[in-house]
Amino acid sequence: MTRPVKIAVLQFTSIGDVVLTTPVIRCLKEQIPTAEIHFCTARAFQPIIDNNPYLTGRHYLDGSLLTFIRQLRVEQFDYVVDLQNTFITGFIRVALGCRSYSVEKQTLRQWLYVRCKVNAMPNQHVVDRYFAAVHPLGVENDGMGLDYFIPYKDEVETDWLPATHQHDFVAYVIGGQSFTRRMPVMRMIELCLKINYPIVLVGDKNDRLAGDEIVRAIGERYVYNACGHYNLNQSASILQQARVVFSHDTGLMHIAAAFGKKVYSIWGSSSPQLGFYPYKTPHVRLETPSLACRPCSATGFGNCPMKHFKCMNNLPFDFDVKELRTKKKNFE
Rank of each mutant, 00 (worst) to 15 (best):
D207S: 04
D159P: 01
A256I: 08
Y230I: 07
W160H: 06
F169K: 07
L315E: 04
H254T: 04
R70Q: 12
H125N: 01
G302M: 05
Q106L: 15
Q71M: 09
H254E: 01
G300M: 11
Y101S: 00
Y172L: 14
I49F: 07
K310F: 00
S247Q: 09
L10F: 15
D128Q: 04
P278C: 08
N123Q: 10
K310Q: 12
V9K: 02
I32K: 00
R285D: 13
H254Q: 06
N119R: 06
F12R: 00
V94N: 05
S102N: 14
N196M: 02
L146A: 08
I189Q: 06
Q11S: 03
V245N: 01
K327N: 12
D318M: 00
V19T: 09
Y264M: 04
W160F: 03
Q31K: 00
Q124K: 11
T22S: 15
P136Q: 05
G203C: 10
T34W: 05
F12S: 04
F131D: 11
I92C: 02
H59E: 12
T180G: 10
L10N: 15
E104P: 01
A258G: 08
I266K: 01
T41K: 08
P151M: 12
Y230W: 03
I48F: 03
P295K: 11
V94I: 15
S247I: 13
F276P: 01
T41Q: 10
R3Y: 04
Q46T: 12
G228W: 08
N231Y: 04
D212H: 11
M121W: 10
L61V: 06
R26K: 14
D147H: 05
G219P: 01
F87M: 07
G138I: 01
K327W: 12
L193K: 07
T56P: 01
E157S: 10
Q110L: 15
V94G: 06
G219A: 11
H254W: 05
G16D: 06
V118L: 15
P282S: 14
S235A: 15
F45I: 13
K6E: 14
V9C: 03
L239A: 10
G97Y: 12
Y230R: 05
